[in-house]
Amino acid sequence: MKRDIAIEVKNVSKKFKIPHEKIDTMRSIFVNIFSKKTYEEFKALDDVSFKVKKGETFGIIGRNGSGKSTLLKILSGVYRVDEGEVNIDGKISPFLELGIGFNPELSGRDNIFLNATILGLNQKEIKEKFDHILEFSEIGRFIDQKVKNYSSGMKGRLAFSVAIHADREILLMDEVMAVGDMRFKDKCLDVFENFKKQGKTIVLVNHSPEVIRVNCDNAMVLDGGKVMAVGDPDEVMKEYERIVNV
């Protein structure tokens, strides 16, 4: 792998077996011991290859069920590949969902520590960044309240602030820009711009061709688990619009 490449995906395929009857107890094993186990195979990703350069913002677009989330899960290490190869150079932030591990029964403060630890920070780093996280989230004096008493906006803001402080070289962003009100969104966009300036590699998954066009250096269209087009965002979005309109 060349040194200027952050993510290299080579001929990756991923299949899911969907059983017709799910066997999830010991009892059902015995009950179904002689019956044939049938399942359907679903190919979520089919021979997907692409490269993301370091410092680049790479957009992925595709209809529902096109394999975007599966791809992100493979990049973040949640799923393994069936075939092919994934090489990643740099620390990757699994931005798949905000507030992973958040517990409503804990205070905002405890949740910051919990969530940041899950995202890979150590206690010293969290203590150093705590004030920034708190300030950015605009939770203020509610930080020692239980998260179950937060509004969904507050929860989203808190989760987002922790996530952006995770300090990774490669960021996976799955439509997470949509938290908070207009003002908070502007703040998030600032952060996003900052990340770009700092030379972070960003993989942005979005449904809006406009967002990809404006923000990305390169883009890719997925459909039915296959790469339909990859390259310049303007060209790629034309292909996407063609697929959607068919």
Binding site: G77, K91, F113, L114, T117, I118, G120, L121, N122, Q123
Partner: peptide
Amino acid sequence: KQHENYKELIWVLAKT
């Protein structure tokens, strides 16, 4: 490489 904070992760999860 991704998770160098194993020990802390284990401890924080247990404590929680």
